[in-house]
Write a protein that binds this DNA or RNA. Structure first.
Length: 509
RNA sequence: GUCCCCAUCGUCCAGAGGCCCAGGACGUGGCCCUUUCAAGGCCAAAACACGGGUUCGAAUCCCGUUGGGGACGCCA
């Protein structure tokens, strides 16, 4: 089995295309097949190397490694259409010689007028066939005279085209709605429908899995396979991914490119897992209705093991970022804290916290991850959840109305003072020490439960909400012990915080 | 306009004639847990687009309607 993903390098890798790539990858990996990446850059004007590089980078980031491709080579290269021009040229000659193709001198304006006339008359908007019957000598003469024709494939007119689509079943196209497609443009470059056929055939692609937007190209491509003497591959057309309004997914729905999702702090394994769930389910008929195997969150290898084209759905799916976020939370919790810490660093910087942590700094950040990964959707929310670590300003905290309100009562004030006193003669806190301190404060003030812990939270973090104190407090004091050159912003210890807070408390009107 | 595809809870899926007065997941609501916000646990509401057939029996098969999507490029 040989499958391919063939993006045209004209922009970012979109979630829809990424899903197509993923399904191809799953199919190949689940069947011991070969996954090929081919760059469809036959439109030189729109294709860029930057775009190619970013698409390849995104595919790698998703973990969709390929066996053959532009940068890794392979037996059927080159893998950029722009480097295969000689091949298209030779096959075009072959088609011309066999009269399966002909020169077309029609002007764009003429074509456009014919198209409009056809639509107005209620006829299919296909090429009228003006140059179809042009004698070859005549065509050659016009070329000799300096005209630059395009080359069209001659679609037979005596039969409909029927093919078996793995996800759609039998698909039949009436032949009269298939116009003769251009296979070589006037400038000599190959057109899409022709280049794919030549490439897929020469690369021995056995299964073409692509978006449904290509389904209407399939009959002409099949005709070309036949004219060229190649055996057509198995086709599978995937329903498209839609936006929440059931329209085409677009920027107005929010992020649409893989790069954007990465930038927002989604993990590749979450994106891959979620994408696999649009139009496919790891639950087979075997799962039954009594629940059974209802697991949707699976590692990519397991997805590949279970994947089958036959089980791919036929209807379009709406992209649901909420469900993506759910998958992301899951993988955030599963992931190695050190990895998450490393991934979070750029987000801290983006949030305005300059840092360049070394090993010790990263270990510290990693130690703080368990208290946030459970309560966050994405990496870019981590800094916000951890502000209490790096930013402590007693005066600023006292300026908060909610804080003022809470601290206006006698009980909370006594808690804050007792806490400061207690901390004054204590070493840096770990979890156990913090508990004993809390107990001591409780004994001295008679405050307990919420009355006890909320003031402590405010005094130590300056905030009225945040991660569990049991976790934050030890983290703060671990951070306070970090050497300056660990590459993190300085962290004020709990003792200093409590003292500063009481001072601010005393100063307020 | 022409052709092609699609149609189960708000969303993603399960369902391949009786197992379904339809099952799971996300989201939503409620409850529990809890020093806060979350997380987590439990419970609940929520769908077979419509109309005709076929059949003893249809979410499942057929036809039509409606609705949605896609394609009709010297873009891919």
């Amino acid at each position: 089995m040989r499958v391919r993903f063939a993006p045209s390098p004209t922009g970012q890798l979109h979630v829809g295309n990424a899903r197509t790539a993923l399904f191809n990858w799953l199919l190949a990996r689940g069947n011991g097949g070969t996954f090929i990446v081919r760059i469809e850059d036959s439109d030189a004007g729109r294709s860029t190397r930057d775009s190619e590089a970013s698409i390849l980078r995104d595919l790698r980031w998703l973990g969709l490694e390929w066996d053959e491709g532009p940068d890794v080579g392979g037996a059927c290269g080159p893998y950029r259409q722009s480097e295969r021009l000689h091949l298209y040229e030779s096959y075009a000659k072959e088609l011309l010689a066999a009269d399966h193709a002909y020169y077309c001198f029609c002007s764009m304006a003429q074509l456009e007028a014919e198209r409009q006339a056809a639509v107005a008359a209620g006829r299919p908007a296909v090429y009228a066939g003006t140059c179809r019957r042009l004698a070859k000598e005549q065509a050659l003469a016009r070329i000799a005279a300096g005209e630059r024709p395009a080359i069209r494939f001659r679609v037979p007119d005596d039969r409909d085209v029927v093919f078996q689509d793995v996800v759609r079943g039998d698909v039949r196209f009436q032949i009269d709605v298939i116009g003769d497609p251009i296979i070589v443009r006037a400038d000599g470059t190959p057109a899409y429908n022709f280049a794919v056929v030549v490439d897929d055939a020469l690369m021995d692609v056995t299964h073409v899995v692509r978006g449904e937007d290509h389904i209407s190209n399939t009959p002409r491509q099949i005709l070309m396979y036949e004219a060229l003497g190649f055996t057509p591959p198995v086709f599978a057309h995937l329903a498209l991914v839609m936006g929440p309004d059931h329209g085409p997914l677009s920027k107005r729905h929010g992020a649409t490119s893989i790069a954007e999702f990465r930038a927002k702090g989604y993990l590749p394994e979450a994106l891959v897992n979620y994408l696999a769930l649009i139009g496919w389910s790891p639950r087979g008929p075997a799962a039954g209705r009594s629940g059974g195997d209802d697991v949707e969150l699976l590692p990519i290898d397991e997805l590949a093991r279970r994947f089958s084209l036959e089980r791919v759905g036929q209807s379009a799916g709406v992209f649901d970022e909420e469900k993506l976020a759910w998958a992301n939370r899951h993988y955030l919790k599963m992931a190695d804290p050190l990895r998450i810490a490393e991934l979070a660093v750029p987000h801290f910087r983006q949030a305005g916290l300059e840092m360049n942590p070394d090993r010790r700094g990263l270990d510290f950040l990693a130690s703080a991850m368990p208290m946030v990964t459970a309560s966050v959707d994405r990496l870019n929310q981590i800094p916000g959840r951890l502000t209490s670590l790096f930013q402590y300003d007693a005066a600023k905290a006292m300026a908060d109305l909610r804080v003022q309100e809470e601290m206006s009562a006698d009980g909370p004030q006594r808690v804050a003072r007792a806490l400061a006193d207690e901390l004054a003669h204590r070493p840096r806190l770990d979890r156990e020490l913090f508990r004993s301190v809390a107990n001591e404060v409780k004994a001295q003030t008679g405050q307990k439960g919420k009355q006890l812990f909320h003031p402590i939270r405010i005094a130590l973090t300056g905030l009225t909400e945040g991660p569990e104190l049991d976790l934050v407090v030890p983290a703060i004091d671990r951070g306070a012990e970090l050497p300056r050159d660990a590459g993190l912003p300085p962290i004020l210890g709990c003792r200093e915080r409590a003292t500063a807070f009481v001072a601010a408390l005393n100063q307020r009107p």
